[in-house]
Every structure is written in C-alpha cells, then in structure tokens.
Design a protein around this nucleic acid. Structure first.
Lengths: 236, 236
DNA sequence: AAGTGGTCTAGACCACGTT
DNA sequence: ACGTGGTCTAGACCACTTC
C-alpha cells in the first residue's frame, strides 16, 4: 500500500495517497470536482500518466468518478469495493486439506421455474437442462448445487459427462467468456436441502446464486447452498 | 470489454483478449509460464507498457500470476473474481427509496470477547469501545450493528457522537486509510439479535463481519446482521 | 467546438527475487 | 549476477462528452 520509496520521482502511489488524504480531510468533498490531470501533474511535478494511474486506481476503488470532458469528481457515495474470490469448490476444499468428492444427484430436462426464469431472462416453462449435485469434503456434504443450463447457448454440452466432473468445472473450462451476476444470501434450509446436506435440524445456510451470460444470452444459473459454518472471506 | 477500435495501433485490450484466448484455448495451460513482456511486445508489435497494462489487468482478475524475475504464469487456480460493492447502509437504504433511521442501542467500554480478539489480533479481555446500533429502513429494523473500536489507534474518537451518526460513517470519514478483511456468513438469529430485529421466529440472517486495520493495528471490528431477505448482489 | 480523460510510444532506470 | 516485471517521462493523438 505504500509508495516503494523510489529515488526522487513522484510515484503514482504518492499521488494516490495525497489525493486520498485530500478527500479524507474534506478539502475535496463528495460530489465535487477535483483538478484535471494536467493541473495535478504540474502540482505533483510528475507526468500526466502518473496522475492518470493514481486516479484510475482510486476510481476503481470507487472513491472517484471519472468522465471525459466532465472531469473527475469525488464519488458522492464512496462505496467500499472489495475483491471477492470465488474458487471452484473442489479447489476450495483441497486448499483446505480436505479430500474432494462429487455426487450427481439428478440430471434431466425440466421446465424452468418462474424464479429461475426471471434471473436468467428466459421464459418460464422453457425446457432446460437441470442438474442437482452434492459436493463433499472428506465424505461429508459440503455444498448442494442446483443448476440450470441453457443447452441452446452451449455447443458441446451433450458431450459432457456430469457424473464425473462438476458442471461448474466443465463450464469454466469450456465456455469462452462470460459476464454475469452473483447474489449472496442466507436462507433456512428447506426440507430437500436439509436432507441432501444431512442436517439434523433447521439451520441457516449461506447461499450463492450465479447467473452467467455471454452476449446477453443466459448460459447457466446455479444456486449453491453451503453446509452450516461456511464463511466467505475477502480482503479489502 | 471490447477494444475501442483505435486507428491502427495495438490496444492493451487487444493484447488482453488475445492472451485470454490463448489461455482459454489451452495453448497456455494453468501453471505454465507465458512469454515475458518484451517478447510479447514484439509479437504484438506494440510497446512493452501496453503489454504490461494488459497482463496487469488479467493478473488483477486472477487469471495470471506475475512475479519479478520469475515471470508471468497462467494461474494454477483460475479463481473467478468479482467486485463487491459495500455501500454505507444509509446509502444502500436511500438508494432503494427508503427513509433511513439509526438508533444507538448501547455504548460503552467492555472487555474484548475471545472471538473478536482473535479477529482483531488483540488480546482477549482488552478493554475496547463497544457499540450496538440498529439501522432502520422506513422505521423497520434493517440491520443490527455490533462494533468494537480500538480507541488507542484512533485519535479524535472521543469527539465522536455516535448517537447521531453511525460509527461506520464516522470512521469512513475520519480514518485516513485502511486495509482489512471481510467475511460473509449465514447464521440463525440468536435471542438478542432476534429481539433487536423484531423477528417473530428463528430466521436465517445474512451476516457481514469486517475487520479494519491500519499498518497492522486493528482499528475496528464490526458485525452486521441483516434482517431476513437481504441479498448482496455483484457483477462478475 | 473544445476540454478532459484514455491510451500508445520509445527509452530509461529501478526493485525484486531467482539463480 | 541478472532477468523480469514495475514504473516514470515527454510527447502525441484519440475518443467521449459536455458546452
């Protein structure tokens, strides 16, 4: 986080920290414009690119808003942004020293429920591939996966054997590029989920829903319910 | 996501996309080194800085691992990374059209519980400032905040009036810079939490824990329990 | 039309970490 | 030692957006 103490030139980290200090001190208030890159470069006696690097970093963190011609402003709503790592479940388990297991519970084609259809932007009742599977850590249920796949958007899907490899891994390896949304939530385990995860009593589950698209077309929707005790960690 | 169709020069987006395609196609496999920046610059007929920009972007997304002298490798575990926005609760509510309310439930000094001490890296039993407060949306409980503050690390804390402004907002505005961790989890509401959030029955709550540090010193630890139904959304 | 951020180049030096 | 990424500079042109 600190400037790496370069010889004598002004580093972009120095610019970033100084700008940050001015925001924090209230010298530059939320919603207000700050000087343009050229002016700042003169102030800091550095190249404009250096200022650009610093401001871009702050913009990526959500503290500045930048628009051509309109200039740079202190973000009105300085949201904190964090980077969330979402590893493959297998690797998450193996990184923790556990032995990974995978069990396909069901596979077939079914009409899309309304709730899922809404998230995928498809029509309710459309027939999609539907999978449910269990991820195991050291033989114990770790997470329940409930997935819908838009086969029409994925050539080659028919070749996949989801009894051997998790759909997630297959997709990560085989689908070129994707955008999407993720939603995190807490839910009480329903009867089926509780049975699959072998819960003795009702428990709060951490649930992750992910919709993946490519060029607007929904590829897959997955809902992962983690066994109790799961924590998702991030670094600010 | 697309290169902005510049005149004739190779853009860093083009480099990024091409490198990405090579990873996706399997030409460059996980764990394997890729050519160094200078070589790639020659391949792409562009400046090395342009390659640097492209590779840095991919590294930030978690697809590449870069180390001086060791060079650049395709990440062995290509984790998906998403950007998580963590707005102030007040703004989260107001952005949704609700009226924000804040109620300080308790304020004082108390010995640090073991669990919190572990997360803050402080000694159990150390006396810290302890606050509990309720965030309200349209008069209804929205989230319960349980916070510990290391007053020793924050000059000016004594001047703060947490009955008027939330501790979070005060800290965001007054503490210069910070690193930290965030953990997300699901929990069944305990008796006190259920009472504060006015829950009629046991429910699953989405819980966010955040530890903030500056230069290794823990500044604050906060645990926010959201009312049922809360979802945290992100874009991939 | 004009101002501001976005990016590219070529060359240079440096910091880090492997060897 | 030395190879590789990290960064800075000065100048240039471009793209987007507001005026």
């Amino acid at each position: 986080m600190n400037p790496p103490a370069r010889s004598s030139q002004t580093s972009w980290q120095t610019v970033r920290d100084t700008v940050l200090a001015r925001i924090r001190s209230g010298e530059w208030k939320p919603g207000e414009p700050i000087p343009n890159e050229a002016d700042l470069a003169r102030q800091f006696s550095c190249a404009r690119v250096t200022v650009n690097r610093a401001l871009r970093a702050l913009a990526e963190e959500g503290l500045l808003e930048r628009r051509r011609k309109a200039g740079t402003r202190v973000a009105a709503f300085p949201t904190r942004k964090a980077r969330l790592h979402i590893p493959l479940i297998r690797e998450e388990i193996e990184a923790g020293g556990g032995s990974y297991g995978y069990r396909l519970l069901s596979q077939g084609t079914a009409p899309l429920p309304a709730a899922v259809a809404r998230r995928m932007g498809l029509e309710e009742g459309a027939r999609l591939v539907h999978l449910t599977a269990l991820h195991l850590c050291a033989g114990r249920p770790y997470a329940l996966e409930d997935r819908w796949i838009n086969a029409a958007a994925i050539p080659g899907l028919a070749d996949a054997d989801f009894s051997r490899i998790s759909a997630n891994e297959w997709l990560v390896s085989n689908v070129p590029f994707s955008e999407g949304e993720i939603a995190l939530m807490a839910e009480l385990a329903g009867a089926e989920t509780a049975a699959a995860l072998e819960l003795a009593r009702p428990e709060a589950l951490f649930v992750l829903e992910r919709t993946t698209r490519r060029g607007g077309a929904a590829i897959t929707f997955v809902r992962i319910s983690y066994a109790p005790g799961y924590r998702l960690r991030m670094t600010l």
